[in-house]
Amino acid sequence: MKALSRVYLFLIFLFLYAPIAVLIVFSFNASTTMSRSVWSGFSFRWYSILFQDQMLLDALRNTMLIAATAAIVSTVLGTAAAIGIFGMKKWTKRVVMNVTNLPMVNPDIVTGVSLMLLFTFAARILGGSLGMFSLVLAHITFCLPYVILSILPKLGQMNPNLFEAAQDLGCNPLSAFFRVVLPEIFPGIVTGMIMAFTLSIDDFVISYFTSGTTQTLPIFIYSMTRKRVSPEINALSTLLFGTIIVLLLLINLRNSKDKKPSRAPQMEV
């Protein structure tokens, strides 16, 4: 039984990691023919080409810019929203939460086309065209529910008297919020912000419909997959993957120090 379960674990993880291993291995392929399955020796050449590809670097810059903006704006807006929603009456709360859940429940493609309709409509009236601005708006929109849902449980866990205790000791409501409530829900805010950032970096479907001619990294990759993907993309994703692993290790170290494993809110959906 024990051996059987080990074999099972091994097979599933083989399935999960085989393609990633292939990607990483082929990022070091010396091949000049761009063949995706012929190994012709070890080299770093795709890594050096990567840093000279202006289109790709632009896409990377756009992606980072959008992710940072979307993460910050959705965190600020979402934190305020969570506090407001938490204080709402049961019925109002239910309505607001149902609408909030809509972008998470709806297929991405439907969210994407609905926002595309809005942006093209607005562009026709106000002038301008789809691009960085519409991308940022779209990303904030789909990040918001995740931020709100990672903060709400923290508010629920908080002793409801804390806010009152601070006022009782002489804080006005605003300073009571900053001195007592904010530190309490801070882990939720950080989780929400990290989720927003990673969701934004990874998003293809919604960006695809709201980007106009602007390229983000996933869109750039998509346009390449329709022809042939240059191994420099393998190189780039290897680098990104490495960064993510380092970040996760750091977060995990911090969490195990706190002894409070913060479950990703998506598991609670």
Binding site: N159, N161, E164, A165, D168, L169, G170, P173, P183
Partner: peptide, 20 residues
């Protein structure tokens, strides 16, 4: 008069100590 301007203080049921 709002709570923070009153010269009374409260001991709450579940203490409400600031955990941070």
């Amino acid at each position: 008069l709002p709570p923070h301007k009153r010269e009374v203080n409260t001991i709450f049921q579940k203490y409400a100590l600031f955990p941070h």
